[in-house]
Protein backbone atom coordinates (compact mmCIF):
# COMPACT_ATOMS: atom_id res chain seq x y z
CA UNK A 1 0.00 0.00 0.00
CA UNK A 2 1.39 3.41 -0.95
CA UNK A 3 1.60 6.01 1.73
CA UNK A 4 -1.35 8.33 1.18
CA UNK A 5 -1.15 12.07 1.58
CA UNK A 6 -4.24 14.13 1.00
CA UNK A 7 -3.50 17.71 0.15
CA UNK A 8 -5.51 20.40 1.89
CA UNK A 9 -7.80 22.82 0.09
CA UNK A 10 -5.36 25.66 -0.33
CA UNK A 11 -2.07 24.98 -2.10
CA UNK A 12 -0.59 28.37 -2.76
CA UNK A 13 2.74 30.03 -2.15
CA UNK A 14 1.77 30.46 1.49
CA UNK A 15 1.72 26.70 1.98
CA UNK A 16 4.32 25.74 -0.61
CA UNK A 17 7.31 25.66 1.67
CA UNK A 18 5.60 23.55 4.30
CA UNK A 19 4.21 21.21 1.66
CA UNK A 20 7.64 20.83 0.13
CA UNK A 21 9.09 19.85 3.50
CA UNK A 22 6.27 17.44 4.21
CA UNK A 23 6.60 15.76 0.84
CA UNK A 24 10.39 15.64 1.06
CA UNK A 25 10.11 13.82 4.38
CA UNK A 26 7.51 11.41 2.98
CA UNK A 27 9.72 10.75 -0.01
CA UNK A 28 12.57 9.76 2.24
CA UNK A 29 10.44 7.37 4.26
CA UNK A 30 8.09 5.75 1.79
CA UNK A 31 8.94 3.90 -1.42
CA UNK A 32 5.36 4.35 -2.60
CA UNK A 33 3.45 7.60 -2.38
CA UNK A 34 -0.04 8.52 -3.35
CA UNK A 35 -1.02 12.16 -3.37
CA UNK A 36 -4.75 12.68 -3.24
CA UNK A 37 -5.60 15.95 -4.99
CA UNK A 38 -9.36 15.75 -4.59
CA UNK A 39 -9.57 18.34 -1.80
CA UNK A 40 -7.55 21.03 -3.51
CA UNK A 41 -9.70 24.06 -4.17
CA UNK A 42 -7.04 26.62 -4.84
CA UNK A 43 -3.65 26.15 -6.40
CA UNK A 44 -1.13 28.54 -7.88
CA UNK A 45 2.19 28.30 -9.64
CA UNK A 46 4.08 27.77 -6.39
CA UNK A 47 1.79 24.90 -5.43
CA UNK A 48 2.07 23.38 -8.88
CA UNK A 49 5.84 23.69 -8.79
CA UNK A 50 5.94 21.62 -5.60
CA UNK A 51 4.06 18.89 -7.44
CA UNK A 52 6.45 19.21 -10.37
CA UNK A 53 9.35 18.94 -7.98
CA UNK A 54 7.80 15.87 -6.33
CA UNK A 55 7.27 14.27 -9.68
CA UNK A 56 10.88 14.81 -10.65
CA UNK A 57 12.34 13.92 -7.26
CA UNK A 58 10.31 10.71 -7.09
CA UNK A 59 11.68 9.66 -10.46
CA UNK A 60 15.19 10.39 -9.27
CA UNK A 61 14.73 8.49 -6.00
CA UNK A 62 12.85 5.65 -7.64
CA UNK A 63 9.79 6.28 -5.57
CA UNK A 64 6.53 5.12 -7.06
CA UNK A 65 4.38 8.23 -7.13
CA UNK A 66 0.70 8.35 -7.89
CA UNK A 67 -1.15 11.67 -8.26
CA UNK A 68 -4.79 10.77 -7.80
CA UNK A 69 -8.26 12.27 -7.94
CA UNK A 70 -7.33 15.71 -9.22
CA UNK A 71 -9.96 18.26 -8.31
CA UNK A 72 -11.29 20.57 -11.04
CA UNK A 73 -9.07 23.33 -9.64
CA UNK A 74 -6.00 21.18 -10.17
CA UNK A 75 -7.01 20.05 -13.64
CA UNK A 76 -7.81 23.60 -14.69
CA UNK A 77 -4.51 24.87 -13.47
CA UNK A 78 -2.50 22.20 -15.22
CA UNK A 79 -4.29 23.00 -18.42
CA UNK A 80 -3.94 26.73 -17.93
CA UNK A 81 -0.15 26.63 -17.75
CA UNK A 82 0.38 23.61 -19.94
CA UNK A 83 2.13 21.67 -17.20
CA UNK A 84 2.96 18.71 -19.34
CA UNK A 85 4.65 16.44 -16.77
CA UNK A 86 1.76 16.71 -14.34
CA UNK A 87 -0.71 16.26 -17.14
CA UNK A 88 1.06 13.10 -18.17
CA UNK A 89 1.24 11.80 -14.63
CA UNK A 90 -2.49 12.23 -14.20
CA UNK A 91 -3.20 10.67 -17.61
CA UNK A 92 -1.26 7.65 -16.52
CA UNK A 93 -3.49 7.25 -13.47
CA UNK A 94 -6.67 7.88 -15.43
CA UNK A 95 -5.60 5.36 -18.00
CA UNK A 96 -4.94 2.57 -15.51
Amino acid sequence: MPHLITLAAEQTIYQAQALHQQLAAALREHPQLEIDLSQVEEIDSAGAQVLLWLHRAAQQQSCQLTLSHPSPAVRDFIRLLGLQPLHNALEAVDGS
Binding site: Q17, A46, A57, Q60, Q84
Partner: peptide, 26 residues
Protein backbone atom coordinates in the same frame (compact mmCIF):
# COMPACT_ATOMS: atom_id res chain seq x y z
CA UNK B 1 -4.10 28.55 -28.78
CA UNK B 2 -1.33 26.58 -27.21
CA UNK B 3 0.60 26.81 -23.99
CA UNK B 4 3.31 24.71 -22.43
CA UNK B 5 5.45 25.11 -19.35
CA UNK B 6 9.12 24.55 -19.46
CA UNK B 7 10.34 23.49 -16.05
CA UNK B 8 13.85 22.40 -16.88
CA UNK B 9 15.28 24.81 -14.36
CA UNK B 10 13.37 23.18 -11.54
CA UNK B 11 15.79 21.13 -9.45
CA UNK B 12 14.86 17.64 -8.32
CA UNK B 13 16.89 17.79 -5.15
CA UNK B 14 16.73 19.63 -1.86
CA UNK B 15 17.92 22.85 -3.42
CA UNK B 16 14.37 23.35 -4.64
CA UNK B 17 13.01 26.59 -3.24
CA UNK B 18 9.24 26.40 -3.05
CA UNK B 19 8.81 30.17 -3.30
CA UNK B 20 11.09 30.67 -6.26
CA UNK B 21 9.80 30.62 -9.79
CA UNK B 22 11.31 28.04 -12.15
CA UNK B 23 8.68 28.14 -14.84
CA UNK B 24 9.05 29.39 -18.35
CA UNK B 25 6.01 29.53 -20.58
CA UNK B 26 5.78 29.09 -24.31
Amino acid sequence: QAIASCSSALPADESFDAERNYLRLE
